[in-house]
């Protein structure tokens, strides 16, 4: 029984982790607190649905296209909204208001394009089972866990061992110094928005077969944001840990204590964690360029 609960909690936790990574990546590199990040989940889920229902029945193709389109929307959000505001001297609060605008307008655009009714992925995607020892678990949960871990590990390798990744880390650590060293900040930040949008889009296509795709599915971003903060806002590894922790607390709290008060239990525990570690589990030091 505990293994079943662990697996389902871990699967949802992995989704939170992917979205939380996006929050952290964007914030760490550009200083933008993009509250609307969760809405890229919606873009991924709905684009994935359109692909699987009218272009290709291959689920992995829908993941790929969902990721690309969500990435492009992320890129455009930076190029058309955040970067111009920052360039014209906009403060954090102005950027925050713009991100709230994105959070409100994207679902409405989604509803205009795809309608307000929930859209379900073909049931063959979500109905397979995998045997783990004597326990039967959902094949979709298994796929979410495996794919998410592959993506998370690939990201760590990308940041550590590629030139692009190292440049992004340099920007994340100190924007001014990286610029002095000749790194084109604007180009790399735009790329980070593209990647972060893509990551969140993948989360949307992975989530949609278990739930459904709909214009309001971006609300999951609120929990992912909490995960990013608990993990240590701005720390990508912390975001992964925070997301998984959140998923497991939800699953075990809901089943072992009370399903009715699952969210209450979750947030009480999160507040307790924040009281002991106000900067999160892997809280990062203040950026050098803002010290």
């Amino acid at each position: 029984m505990y293994l079943d609960i662990f697996i389902s909690g871990l699967a949802v936790g992995c989704i939170y982790s992917l979205i939380a990574m996006s929050y952290s990546l964007i914030f760490r590199s550009s200083g933008v607190l993009n509250i609307g990040t969760g809405e890229f989940v919606m873009i991924g889920g709905l684009v994935g649905y359109s692909v699987i229902s009218s272009i290709s029945t291959n689920y992995f193709v829908s993941i790929l296209i969902g990721m690309v389109i969500a990435g492009v929307v992320g890129y455009l959000a930076n190029t058309l909204v955040f970067h111009p505001i920052q360039k014209r001297g906009g403060q954090d609060v102005h950027v925050l208001i713009a991100s709230i605008g994105i959070m409100i307008s994207l679902p409405q655009i989604g509803a205009l394009i795809w309608g307000a009714e929930p859209l379900s992925f073909p049931s063959n995607i979500s109905q397979g089972q995998v045997n783990v020892g004597a326990t039967q678990i959902s094949g979709m949960s298994f796929l979410i866990i495996v794919l998410s871990f592959v993506i998370m590990i690939a990201f760590q390798l990308f940041f550590r061992f590629t030139r692009f990744g190292q440049a992004m880390r340099a920007i994340a650590d100190d924007r001014i110094m990286s610029q002095l060293l000749g790194i084109n900040n604007h180009k790399y930040i735009a790329l980070i928005f593209l990647i972060a949008g893509g990551l969140t889009g993948v989360a949307g296509v992975l989530l949609a077969p278990i739930y459904y795709a709909s214009y309001d599915m971006g609300t999951i971003g609120i929990k992912a944001f909490a995960a990013a903060v608990v993990g240590g806002f701005g720390n990508v590894t912390g975001a992964v840990i925070g997301g998984i922790l959140l998923g497991l607390i939800e699953a075990f709290g809901g089943t072992m204590i009370s399903s009715q008060f699952r969210d209450l239990i979750l947030y009480v525990i999160l507040i307790a964690v924040m009281l002991f570690r106000p900067t999160g589990i892997l809280g990062i030091k203040q950026r050098r360029d803002t010290a």
Partner: peptide, 21 residues
């Protein structure tokens, strides 16, 4: 009895627990 909020979407852990017990 599993009481869930009106916006709940993830029931996996409840179903697993119920089916096992």
């Amino acid at each position: 009895e599993f009481k869930y909020p009106v916006d709940a979407k993830d029931f996996n852990s409840y179903i697993s627990q119920g089916m096992s017990q």
